[in-house]
């Protein structure tokens, strides 16, 4: 559905992609998540920057887009809950994220801040994406159809009014922030904060 504010179309989308990407890269760097130590210490419960950035983005963006969607000013873009593929993919992703030390987005941004290991990982990502493309036909036939719930949202799967879900999300974020700010251990490595 075309929404009223979605005036960026056609070739303008190229510039919009570049501009929004630049803002995103700046924010990732300013947030500190382009730093290997911040990522690894998150998984060791010694630095909660990643969780703070992500949950705040989810609550602010979520409430905003929920309101816009309610006024037909934004479309949802839901990815299929192909549960076997999502679970296997997420397991691999967690392992890769700790060894690489970045996620795909923060890795790209970290290259911009001068991290050569992030660049090596980028070449790995090119190779890995190539491997996926080559194995796609087999995966599409054998993995993706297993436990495919479709493009479902949590309120559709579990019921309950939409606003309760968003209120619950905001409350959960506040509880998590309160807990992690009490539970503070020194990060390993250097110069991390948050």
């Amino acid at each position: 559905m075309h929404t009223a504010f979605a005036f960026i179309t056609g070739p303008g989308l190229l510039w919009a992609g570049l501009l929004f990407g630049i803002i995103f890269g700046m924010l990732l760097h300013r947030g500190g998540v382009t730093d290997y130590h911040v990522i690894v210490n998150q998984f060791l419960f010694r630095d909660f920057t990643v969780l703070k950035v992500m949950l705040t983005a989810i609550v602010v963006g979520g409430v905003g887009i929920f309101i816009l969607h309610g006024h037909q000013l934004a479309n949802f873009h839901i990815k299929s809950a192909t549960m076997l593929a999502v679970v296997l993919g997420a397991l691999l992703f967690g392992i890769g994220m700790v060894i690489y030390g970045y996620c795909p987005g923060t890795g790209i941004a970290a290259i911009g801040t001068g991290k050569l290991d992030a660049l090596a990982g980028f070449f790995g990502m090119i190779a890995g994406a190539g491997a996926y493309a080559v194995s796609y036909d087999w995966i599409a036939a054998n993995i993706l159809p297993v436990a495919d719930l479709g493009k479902k949202r949590l309120p559709q799967l579990f019921g309950g009014p939409e606003w309760v879900w968003y209120a619950g999300l905001a409350l959960m974020a506040l509880v998590v922030f309160t807990l992690v700010n009490r539970f503070h251990r020194h990060p390993i490595g250097c110069c991390t904060q948050g």
Binding site: L92, G96, G101, G128
Partner: peptide, 14 residues
């Protein structure tokens, strides 16, 4: 190698 694994996971999970 971490890059290979993370992107394969990301593509599998879409």
């Amino acid at each position: 190698l971490g890059g290979v694994v993370i992107i394969f996971g990301a593509r599998l999970a879409d």
